[in-house]
Amino acid sequence: MNRLQKVSADAASAGRKIFCAFTTVGYPDLVKTEKLVLGFARDGVDIVELGFPFSDPLADEPTIQYSSEQALAGGVRLKDAFDLARKLRKKRCEVPLVFFTYFNPIFRYGTKKFLSQARSSGFDAVLVPDLPPEQEGDFRREAKAQGLAQIFLIAPTTSPARMRMIARESEGFIYYVSLRGVTGARQAVPSDIRRHLAEIKKTADKPVLVGFGVSKPDQARELSRWSDGVIVGSAIIDRIRKADGRIEPASEFIREMVLAVKGETGGR
């Protein structure tokens, strides 16, 4: 059983929700990214999405764009993301790691080389927001061959037939985009979400996590009631940004969010 499967099995048997946190590799710097992730794991985050910055992140809103620009200005490279995963694993941090990036850095690096490096450095899954399931069959096959799960997104605009296809194709979990639009910390939970989630859960045999715009404990708790858990990203970056690069407020925020979603924090 791989790390992602273990998370969903454990959550299912304990009857609790899954909490996934996103952060940008190299923002505010690589050392802090590592500290942040180690903290996430300690505080009960179940899955960590590591976002590798791309110069033209067209599915991201200004907060994550900003962190990407900063990380790139700091000179972060793909190798740094692989090294980070290796360090985390060496420190016995066993939280499942999802490699999140746009397709171009992967394509340029070489699909096969990228996937094998991601796997060997300790990543468990890949999520490429501009690569819907029907693009790049070679990438899909190679990811499978390497034993890396490929996570796909379902949007409120996804048709029912396509939703079933994506629910089948997505591995590890299904990422439900809770709001039309780009990522961002928003205030209200959209009203049509329950219906969509219920439809997806009818066909899905893996956890359905809700992301894009999850920013508050109450909202996270409410969303996780209708799903298998939540993904939080922009709100984390936002806290780091507002604290001028200090990560403590983000860690504090994560503890609140984990508590809201799972009813407990890590604190092993």
């Binding site: 501009d130 819907p132 605009t157």
Partner: peptide, 11 residues
């Protein structure tokens, strides 16, 4: 091809 976020596929 179509290298876009899922949200745009329907449109």
């Amino acid at each position: 091809g179509r290298y876009v976020p899922e949200t745009l596929i329907k449109a």
